[in-house]
Every structure is written in C-alpha cells, then in structure tokens.
Design a protein around this nucleic acid. Structure first.
Length: 678
DNA sequence: GCCCCCTTC
C-alpha cells in the first residue's frame, strides 16, 4: 500500500454547517445505501467527507484533539480511520475507534475491511466481548467503549495507541463519559496521543470546552461535515392531544389514506403502548377490510424471529407500519421508512440515592431526541415527520436529556477509577459531574461490601477483585464468597444469567403471553428468582442448548446463548486469573441462598405486620414486582433483592428468600442485632 | 398487575 501524501489545506471555518439534523448512525447491518450499485472505490470518492480529507489530516497533525461534527451519511465512521491509515498514522500505534454498541462495532469493521478489499482481521480488526478479529497485522481496531476501559486497567496510558476516535460521543452514555474523562487525563501525560471526537452538532462546543484547559494552548479544533440525508418536513399538532397512543393510531390511519407509498415508523415509550397501538390499528385494518397495511411491533424483549419481521420489504402495494420503542432511535435501522410519527415522550431511568433505586419515568423527549427520531424518515427519499405535540411544545423541549452519568448508580465507575489510582473521585474531571449524593451512595455501598476502607482506598484482595471483575460490585462479592462456600459453579451461572438481557420472551399476542407465563412456571421455585434463573440455565444446557427448547418455553435464545458464552468465560477467568476454586454444591440450595445474601445484604426487605414489605435500611415500603417468581407465592419474612425500580410502585425484582440469622452471620459489620427488625 | 436502551477478561 503506497503511502498517500496529501496537500494540506487549512480548514475553512466558514464551511461549518449550521443544521441540527441527525448524526450518523451506521450501527446496524441494515443501513440503507443509495449507491449500492457503484463500485466500492467510486462510492468512497462520492462520500461528502471525501473533500474534508486533507483538512482532517491537517488538523490532526496540528492539534491534539479534533472534534468532528458529521451528519448522517457523511461516512465519517468508515472513512476517517482509512484516511489516517493511508497517511501513515498506524506507524505510531493502533488507530483505535470506540463504538457504543457491539453490532455497530462489528458492522463497521466489516465494512472498512471490505472497502479495502481485505478480510476483517487483517489491517482492520475489531474487539467486542466474546468476539475478536485481531492479528499482528491489524492496525485499525474497532472496539466497544467497554473494551477500551478494560484495556486501560492493564495499560493506563494506552501506549499501544497513536490515535483514538470516540465515535457517537454525543450519545453521552455512561461508558462514553468514562472514556472521555480518562482520555483527557491521558492527553496531559502523552502529548503524542491524538483524539478525534465524533459528535452531533449541538454538542461540539461542549466537547471542545471540555478538552481545553488553562495553559493547554489550543488543543482542539472543530470540523463540520454535511451529510447526504434527504430533506425532512416537520408537522406539529395545532392543539395538544390527550392520548398519544390513540393519536398515533389515528395519524397512521389518516396518513395511510392520504399519503403516497412509503413505510411508517412510530415511536412510543414502552412495550405496553406498542401492544395497545398494535391492537387498535389491527382492529381498524380488520373492520375496514383493508389489505394493504402491514402493522408490526418492535421492542427489545421480542424474540429475534419476531424482530426480524420489520426488516422485510413488504409486497408491492402494501405499506409497512412499525410501532417501536426507543430501540429504533439508535440501535436498529429499519429500511424503507419515509414517514415518522414522534409521540413526544420517552422513558428514562433516574437513580435515587436515598432508596438506592432507579425510577423509570415517562418524560417529554429532548430536542436532540426529536431530531434523531425525525432523521429516521430521510434515508430513502424526502420524508415527513408528524410530531404529536404543538410547535410551541417543541420549542420548549430541553436541548437534550442529562447524560447518563448524572442519572445512574456509580459503584462500577467508582471502582474503575479507584483501580486506575484516582483516589479522590469527587474531584475527578467528569465531562458532566454526577451528583455528589450518587457518589457518596456508591462509596457507602463499596465500604459495606468491604471493597474500600475508611480512607476510601481499595482493599486487598476484595476491592481489587471487585474493580477487575467485569460486572456489578454485589455480584462480584457474591462470586468471591462462593469460592469459600463451595458453590462457585452455581453462582457463576446465576451471574451469567443476570449479565445478559432478560431471557424471558415477551410475546406479542395475549394468548402467547399467557402460554409464556405458564411455560415459565416450569422453572419457578420458592427460593426466588436467582434460583429460578439457575434452573432455566441448567435445563437449557441439558436440552442441548437448542432454539427449539427456547421456543417451546418462551425463552430468548440469543440471550441464553450469550449467558452460556459468558459462563464459559467466567469459569476460566475466576479460576485461572483470580484463583477462585470452581466447585458445585450439588443441589444444596441453602448454601447458594446464603452466598447470594453475602453479596446482596445491603438490599434487604422484611415483611411488616401490615402485610407489606419494607426496606430494612430506610423503612420505605416496597412491593414485589409482578414479574418475580415470588409475586404469587406466600410472603417470606425476609428477602434480598437484586434491583429496585420505581414505576407505579417501588418494585423489588430478582428476589431471594433468606433467613434473618444469615444477615448477622454473613455481614456482622453491617447488621448489629438491634437493627434487624422483628 | 407489569421494564426505555446499552455495555465490561
């Protein structure tokens, strides 16, 4: 490969595009490509980013941080790594690209390898959990954000890298912000490390301010690249609507009567709303004997088979309508969409440090989200977007939701930072600092788990183990104790099952939902949800890990398969790296429940004489979540819970029945006899 | 009587 030597051009700052349309979302195998008939080289030359190539290289040569603002279809995720390679940046270490999701990581690496006429794993490779395609030849390395954070533990200055591109930084996920905060620290120690932040328009100034500090001179420069999306026309209601589910249904119906062919995507906030709208629309279709409208649901806990339906092109003359949750905003791209309906709301999680619980609340979307949703309409041809709220309401929307870092439980982040030698977490330079209460709550939890001492330093061996193990602190503690209790095989299974997304399928039809519930009863036990998960896993393996088994029992194959892979990985990790002996307790359920208690003893509820559970630490009333095994069983006196979620009530989920004495036996530092209520 | 979406040796 001949090294390309460009003639440098100074960036033309007047070229910046003032447009708040969506950013690039090449994060699915189903990205639409208008030029799919052109040769790959010709396609590359046609991308809007091509004419910025020299400017990008110029900026990287002269600045330590480059903020790259690029719209959808600009080609930045696939082209920039290649430009850097062609100019020879790979001689200074890996060209690393972080992505927020596994699917986009793999898809992008494949695409770039294909453009270069190579197989993935040669010059271009990727690393995500469980899958890596890296060889000694690899120079361009796509990876998930989590992988880079793990690598940091072993190589705190990332000395293997010459350039790191943080893609989709505007999403501001928890891990994105961790990466950004740590990269800023590294930049000050490594003047030869270059960073490219790929972001949406509205956040560019935020990033450039974050990456400049007193005495730094000019570290960052902004470059804006137009995309090649089609125009999108926005419509708003004249009057606010009372019920956006009904309004969605009516809008779809009117649209179908009036508008030329083109598929419809409607955003709702949750599974229940999607199913409600689905019922209503199918009723319209049935009663008016319409045959050219195909209505499909899309949400995260559907089986893969059901999800696949939305990717098929409908027969000629038939219009497809997809009713989706936020999964369609960034995680999947549905082809053929011309019309978008935005209900104007979204479900978000907020951490509440007082009760150590998450609240799941429906709130108005942010402008950024509304724009992102609207952008889903302009991929094929000029599109139309129907916002189910007034223009005045749109104008009053917040620019964006607070980043996840400000709304989340922090113990994992605190452990990671401590392991990197950052002692005073309160003074760490977060892109958006989390509330101090959230940090204090995490410190208290970690202290209770014996992960940090009174000075806030990691303990040995427990604290270092909690920091290094790739899952939550309580699960890690449970694993540590299981080595001593002789039930590590079972505990690792439970951990693996909890790490993956829910294995319970939530089917679309009411009849199937009922059958699913009955099928799941086969695995239920009185001890609670963790043991139930253990049963499901055991049955899955005994039945040969087949899709048929999962179909029969309404379980999600892809998640069980990942649990299996994860378990294999954890067995090796626990025994080889951390010297945790791998033993089975051979069906001794009491030992397993005690071990669970050893990890989750800070999350206990007792049955108050009023017949309602109360949180032992605060007295707050708690309810068992209807999805828990224990929902329909007689109430036990004491339970530990894995999670607490505020929706219509404060619900405990992943509940395990325990005995009171275990608390003082396993956590005497935390429970004196007096604090345990009768 | 019910949970948006991601991710980690």
């Amino acid at each position: 490969m001949a090294t390309f030597k460009p003639k440098f051009l100074k960036p033309d700052t007047d070229d910046a595009i003032e447009d708040n349309r969506t950013s690039e979302q090449q994060d699915s195998a189903f990205v639409f490509n208008a030029n799919h008939n052109l040769g790959l080289i010709e396609q590359r030359e046609r991308l809007p980013i091509r004419k910025y190539k020299d400017q990008i290289l110029y900026c990287l040569e002269n600045y330590q941080v480059v903020i790259l603002v690029g719209e959808t279809g600009s080609g930045k995720s696939t082209q920039v790594p290649q430009y850097l390679y062609e100019y020879g940046w790979h001689t200074k270490g890996f060209i690393g690209i972080t992505e927020p999701r596994r699917v986009s990581t793999i898809t992008l690496a494949n695409r770039v390898a294909q453009e270069r006429g190579e197989l993935v794993g040669d010059t271009v490779g990727y690393v995500v959990r469980f899958q890596e395609r890296i060889t000694p030849e690899t120079k361009i390395k796509f990876m998930t954000e989590g992988i880079l954070l793990r690598e940091l533990l072993a190589d705190p200055l990332l000395t293997q890298y010459g350039v790191i591109i943080v893609d989709e930084a505007h999403e501001r996920n928890m891990l994105t912000d961790m990466v950004l905060g740590l990269l800023k620290k590294i930049l000050r120690k490594r003047s030869n490390l270059k960073i490219i932040i790929s972001s949406a328009t509205i956040d560019a100034s935020f990033f450039s301010e974050f990456f400049s500090w007193p005495g730094s001179g000019e570290v960052s420069v902004k470059l804006s690249i137009e995309g090649r999306m089609h125009a999108v026309t926005n419509f708003y209601l004249n009057e606010p609507c009372a019920d956006y589910v009904k309004e969605t249904v009516e809008t779809v119906w009117k649209l179908h009567q009036k508008e030329p062919p083109g598929d419809i995507l409607a955003f709702l906030t949750g599974q229940d709303e999607v199913l409600e709208a689905l019922d209503l629309l199918r009723e319209y279709v049935r009663s008016s004997e319409v045959e050219n409208l195909k209505v499909l649901p899309m949400y995260g806990s559907m089986s893969s088979t059901d999800q696949l339906a939305v990717f098929f092109t409908p027969p000629k003359g038939v219009r497809k309508v997809v009713l989706a949750t936020n999964i369609a905003e960034t995680s999947i791209t549905i082809p053929g969409i011309v019309y978008v309906i935005d209900c104007g709301f979204v479900k978000v999680k907020w951490y509440n440090p007082r009760t150590c619980s998450d609240s799941l609340v429906v709130v108005p979307v942010s402008k950024a989200s509304a724009v992102q949703r609207a952008g889903r309409a302009g991929r094929v041809r000029p599109g139309k977007v129907y916002h189910l709220y007034t223009k005045a309401d749109y104008d009053s929307l917040v620019p964006r939701q607070p980043p996840e870092m400000r709304r989340s439980e922090m113990s994992g982040a605190v452990l990671q930072l401590k392991a990197l030698g950052i002692g005073n977490i309160l003074r760490f330079d977060f892109p958006s600092p989390p509330p101090a209460q959230n940090l204090l709550s995490a410190l208290e939890t970690l202290f209770a788990l014996d992960g940090i001492d009174e000075q806030g330093n990691l303990t040995k061996p427990v604290g270092y183990l909690l920091a290094e193990l790739p899952f939550g602190a309580m699960l890690s503690k449970m694993l540590y104790v299981s080595g001593k209790m002789g039930c590590s095989e079972e505990i690792i299974t439970i951990i693996a099952m909890l790490q993956v997304q829910s294995v319970f399928s939530r089917p679309v039809s009411a009849v199937a939902q009922q059958s699913g519930r009955i099928a799941h009863r086969n695995f239920e036990v009185a001890e609670g949800d963790f043991i139930t998960l253990l049963n499901i896993y055991t049955a899955f393996v005994e039945e040969g890990r087949t899709k048929e088994f999962c179909g029969q029992y309404y379980l999600i194959y892809r998640n069980l398969k990942r649990a299996y892979e994860l378990r294999e990985q954890l067995i090796t990790l626990a025994s080889k790296k951390y010297g945790i002996p791998i033993f089975s307790c051979n069906g001794d359920v009491k030992t397993i429940c005690k071990c669970i208690t050893a990890g989750f003893f800070t999350q206990v509820a007792y049955l108050h004489h009023s017949g309602v559970y109360r949180q032992i630490s605060s007295g707050t009333e708690l309810a068992i979540h209807p999805e828990s095994t224990l929902y329909t069983l007689p109430q036990a006196q004491y339970v530990v819970y894995g999670e607490l979620l505020q929706t219509t009530k404060l619900f405990m989920n992943h509940v395990t029945v325990i005995q009171r004495e275990w608390l003082t036996e396993l956590a005497p530092h935390y429970y004196q006899q007096t604090t345990v209520r009768e």
